[in-house]
Amino acid sequence: MDSTTFVVLLSSVLFIIGVLGVLLRRSALLIFMSVELMLNAANLAFVAYAHRWAQLDGQIFVFFVMAVAAAEVAVGLALIVTIFRTKRSTNVDDLAALRG
């Protein structure tokens, strides 16, 4: 197995662990951290293939993904703080106000 295949395999394992975190954990904070883990796994695949094809563009895309992740964290944590003020909880099972 060459190093690119190994890194992409590692990236997919990390992505699946992130998916499991989003699906199985109940704390909004933990779900959010799992989303960060998934974004990081995607970055790993980008850099691995940038190395594989000897192109710089993959690294530029990682830079943009990081910028979007930073923006997402700022807004997402603001949302969690606001929800915590009204519900006194970060458990997503308590957020049932929109249940039909």
């Binding site: 590692l10 850099v47 990081m66």
Partner: peptide, 14 residues
């Protein structure tokens, strides 16, 4: 891992 994959800028930004 980014450093090993020839991406020093991305490693520092990470």
């Amino acid at each position: 891992i980014y450093l090993l994959l020839n991406a020093p800028f991305i490693a520092v930004v990470q």
